[in-house]
């Protein structure tokens, strides 16, 4: 494992911890898209089916379990916690995420490394992760104001994607057999979706001002 991959995993973990902290400390999930969180839970559940079939490392197994458990916990809180669910911006979270599910599934049926149950679901999870942030970005754009923790959450999530690209570039040069076209192309698309957000994040950081997205 190279440093980019490790830092990518860590920023991913930090983003989830920030989200859990926001929900726990403020008992609020305002600014957070339930649809994006549900898509992430589905991403982890469909991708990590190999927990039952392959053992890669203790690190790998623990991280997978943490991602599954934390994403399910977040979805549960947003749906069922008496205080948290009241703060959910349901009227702003209107992105048609079923369309993303359907498109990702059809693409996975067409493009996969092997036509096998687990492999098709793996490809599905990769495609779905690439676009799962869209409901969240749309919600932020619609609400305009982004609270500090929500802004940090999306920033770290984007940093994780960017670091994974460096990881692939590194692996490409170190291991000539490393060709993961599905993951790499999807990853590039996914990272590109954050470009706009990053732009406004750095502007607000430079001006030491509150993060605001244009309407």
């Amino acid at each position: 494992m190279n440093i980019f991959r490790f830092l990518g995993d860590m920023t991913h973990l930090i983003s989830i911890l920030i989200l859990l902290l926001k929900i726990y400390a403020t008992k609020s999930c305002s600014g957070i898209s339930l649809k994006t969180q549900e898509l992430y839970a589905l991403v982890f559940l469909t991708r990590y089916l190999d927990l039952f079939t392959d053992f890669i490392s203790v690190y790998n197994t623990v991280m997978k379990l943490v991602f599954i458990a934390s994403s399910l916990a977040i979805v549960w809180c947003m749906r069922n916690h008496p205080l948290v669910r009241r703060s959910y911006d349901k009227q702003l979270d209107t992105f048609r995420h079923y369309f993303l599910l359907l498109a990702s599934f059809l693409l996975a049926l067409l493009l996969h490394e092997k036509f096998a149950f687990q492999e098709v679901l793996w490809a599905f999870s990769i495609y779905l992760e690439a676009v799962a942030i869209l409901p969240q970005l749309v919600l932020l754009q619609r609400s305009g104001n982004v609270d500090n923790l929500t802004g940090q959450y999306v920033f770290f999530l984007g940093a994780y994607r960017a670091l994974y690209i460096f990881n692939w570039i590194y692996r490409y040069f170190i291991d000539p057999h490393f060709t993961r076209w599905i993951a790499c192309v999807s990853g590039l698309v996914q990272t590109a979706l954050y470009a706009d957000f990053f732009y406004y994040y750095f502007i607000s950081w430079k001006n030491n001002a509150k993060l605001q997205l244009p309407a």
């Binding site: 991959r5 995993d9 991913h12 991708r47 190999d50 392959d54 890669i56 790998n60 991280m63 997978k64 991602f67 490394e113 092997k114 492999e119 793996w122 994974y164 990881n167 291991d175 057999h177 490393f178 993961r180 993951a183």
Partner: peptide, 10 residues
């Protein structure tokens, strides 16, 4: 060696 069907990344 890494086989084509092992996904070692998260």
């Amino acid at each position: 060696g890494e086989t084509n069907t092992t996904h070692d990344e998260l």
